[in-house]
């Protein structure tokens, strides 16, 4: 199946509803119940580390976005937020332009918030200047994330949920954490009947220097992706394990207990891509999914999603 056929079938089955922009959809209650089931399913697997659990807003502080390094590396993917901040005189002109279909956008001002780039980016600024405990810090976080890459391929959403496990501490701890979660992630996702591959990967850096960054990630094996078929026969990433070295430790002046620059790692579950991969693998009717998959996700056993009355 190609991604266009899959998209049409998702829309026909009512799993997704076109929300007017490429890569933007309303989601059905069934779809949402899978997302929430996945959330519970991976949370269980992360209990051993007793992580601090935080759910981030879809909008983040602009400084947080700047600190992530995302603005320089992926200016083509970010989303900043503008609003009207003018006086009454400017408001008159603004309304005139809106009513006449004119260029009202240029009268808007930048705000100090932006759309969330990745769930883990909000973790690091919380520990700016901190000395970390000897055992490191563990987090389980989730956010609605935005990427400006409009596409008709449902695997490439502009707005999607990312559920991440994050470690802050020393280099050995970060590598151990990532290895452990890559293994755990493969087990968890494989148990859902998905055919997986684990591949070294690089982020889609932008502009001059992009090749240097990408080659660096690959050579140092900083990023691994777990891939599966999501919307077509060509597999894509549904999860990734990342070792950031001291990138965030330097940016946010975080130190280990013995005075070295802190290192960090994260493992991200792409909840929407995993959900789509499950639909792709098992069909559009949840009742027809294999019993073991339904059992593992506790689908139909308890209500992950209470429909509004």
């Amino acid at each position: 199946m190609n991604s266009n056929d899959f998209r049409n079938q998702l829309l026909e089955a009512g799993v997704l509803v076109d929300a007017g922009s490429p890569g933007l959809y309303h989601r059905s209650a069934d779809y949402e119940s899978v997302v929430r089931a996945l959330e519970s399913y991976v949370r269980e697997a992360g209990r051993d580390d007793n992580p601090q659990r935080l759910f981030f807003a879809p909008v983040i502080n602009l400084e947080t976005l700047m600190g992530s390094g995302y603005v320089g590396s992926f200016p083509n993917l970010i989303g900043t937020i503008d609003s009207f901040d003018g006086d009454m005189k400017k408001l008159g002109e603004f309304r005139e332009r809106v009513d006449s279909g004119g260029e009202w956008f240029e009268l808007m001002s930048h705000t100090d918030v932006a759309l969330c780039s990745a769930a883990c980016h909000s973790v690091y600024p919380m520990y700016k200047g901190a000395t970390l405990p000897i055992e490191g810090l563990y987090f389980e976080v989730q956010a609605n994330c935005f990427r400006h890459e409009p596409s008709m391929d449902p695997a490439r959403l502009q707005s999607f949920r990312m559920h991440e496990f994050v470690y802050l501490g020393n280099p050995d701890g970060a590598l151990e954490f990532r290895e452990r979660w890559i293994a755990k992630g493969q087990q968890l996702l494989g148990d859902l009947g998905l055919v997986l591959d684990l591949v070294p990967a690089n982020d889609p850096f932008f502009g001059r220097g992009a090749q240097i960054m990408a080659q660096g990630q690959l050579e140092k094996e900083l990023k691994f992706e777990i891939t599966a078929t999501i919307s077509s026969d060509t597999p894509g990433a549904i999860s990734s394990g990342n070792y950031h070295e001291d990138h965030f430790g330097v940016t946010f002046s975080m130190s280990t207990h013995d005075g070295h620059v802190a290192h960090s790692a994260c493992f991200a579950f792409g909840l929407d891509r995993i959900t789509l991969a499950l639909y792709y693998a098992h069909g559009f009717q949840l009742e027809e999914w294999p019993d073991e998959v339904r059992e593992r996700l506790a689908l139909g056993q308890s209500s992950h999603f209470i429909e509004p009355t």
């Binding site: 390094g69 220097g209 240097i212 960054m213 660096g216 990630q217 070295e245 990138h247």
Partner: peptide, 11 residues
């Protein structure tokens, strides 16, 4: 030499 630093060196 990190990748980020390498890009700065390049510039």
């Amino acid at each position: 030499l990190s990748s980020h630093a390498c890009v700065n060196v390049m510039l």
